[in-house]
């Protein structure tokens, strides 16, 4: 009976999300909330995460993060952590059954207040991306949140309370550890933020982890542990991911030769670059360049970048 009621609420929520999505003035009505509807598969796109909670209602997405592939689908709750470069691809979506999700940015201040009022819990081991069963209580609250979009006055007065309720429901569910860990990871990342900033600014340079650890005023061991806790990966691998994502951006722009792109992101060997790129994204850079070229031509864009 309970599950039937939940599926009815989910069905209602799906309808509400689609209706609100098709009226852009509505789905922009509440800060920190975004609606996602896709009526067909979408090719892999680059993304960077900030602490975010996704209520996935229908369809499926694939996330490629540091060589790992994480699939999630309708009926799941996804928690995405710190500023991580990743690829996302909608792998299951059709016109009659689109991909539907509601995204809620996690407000650390509200989360902190809730945690302080809840019974203490031992720290769990979270991951930068966690996928959990969608708690029924969170579906119900999310449905009410989307309903508020129909009335700006309702949204202005009630939305903060409902967002707070969603966070509380998730904290109380199996995803609670993941949510706590995500926020702790972000705090840790703040302490090593100089290191990630340096990496963003020096994509073509070799990484000197000893210097980065010194800047963070940490020993190498502590720095590695903090970095892994925050990002789920090592400084070297994080830097490599950033470089490859920048390379993919440059490949998509089609403004440079492969050798030049490979050099721009710090590879001395184009063959090595091609191999790493293929391992990260599943296709060789030259194939992506050809594919982007075809897409650009078919969508009527200028091919000036090739000239």
């Amino acid at each position: 009976m309970e599950s039937r009621r939940t599926s009815l609420i989910e069905a209602e929520l799906r309808k509400r999300v689609i209706a609100a999505f098709d009226r852009p003035e509505e789905h922009a009505a509440i800060d920190d909330v975004a609606l996602h509807v896709a009526r067909g598969p979408v090719a892999p796109m680059l993304t960077h995460f900030h602490p975010t909670l996704y209520v996935v209602l229908q369809g499926a997405k694939r996330l490629i993060l540091g060589g790992r592939q994480i699939d999630y689908h309708g009926g799941q709750l996804v928690l995405m952590g710190v500023d991580l470069p990743a690829l996302v691809e909608i792998i299951q979506a059709t016109e009659p059954a689109p991909y539907i999700a509601v995204e809620l940015a996690v407000d650390r201040r509200v989360l902190g207040e809730l945690v302080a009022q809840m019974p203490p819990r031992p720290p769990g081991r979270g991951r930068p991306v966690g996928v959990y069963p969608l708690p029924a209580s969170a579906v119900s609250a999310t449905s009410r949140l989307v309903q508020l979009m129909e009335s700006p006055t309702d949204a202005r007065i009630l939305a903060e309370g409902v967002k707070r309720e969603i966070l509380y429901r998730v904290l109380s569910s199996g995803g609670g550890d993941g949510l706590l860990q995500m926020v702790r990871a972000e705090e840790t990342l703040a302490s090593i933020g100089q290191a990630t900033d340096w990496m963003h600014d020096h994509l073509g340079a070799p990484i000197a982890v000893e210097d980065l650890a010194a800047r963070a005023r940490m020993s190498m061991s502590t720095f590695y542990r903090a970095f892994k806790d925050a990002t789920g990966t090592t400084p070297t691998q994080y830097h490599k991911m950033l470089r490859l994502h920048e390379a993919r951006r440059l490949v998509a722009l089609r403004s440079r030769s492969m050798t030049s792109i490979s050099e721009a992101v710090g590879y001395a060997s184009p063959a090595q670059f091609s191999r790493d790129y293929k391992r990260a994204f599943g296709s060789a850079p030259i194939h992506d360049a050809q594919r982007y070229g075809r897409e650009a031509v078919s969508s009527g864009e200028s091919a000036a970048a090739d000239q």
């Binding site: 060589g67 982890v209 190498m220 061991s221 590695y224 090592t234 070297t236 691998q237 590879y267 090595q272």
Partner: peptide
């Protein structure tokens, strides 16, 4: 051991064609 030891050695490699995984 500690992960930084292997990663530092990898970073210091003179090879232009190199790869590592954990």
């Amino acid at each position: 051991t500690r992960p930084y030891d292997l990663e530092n050695a990898y970073a210091a490699l003179g090879a232009t064609e190199k790869d590592m995984f954990w």
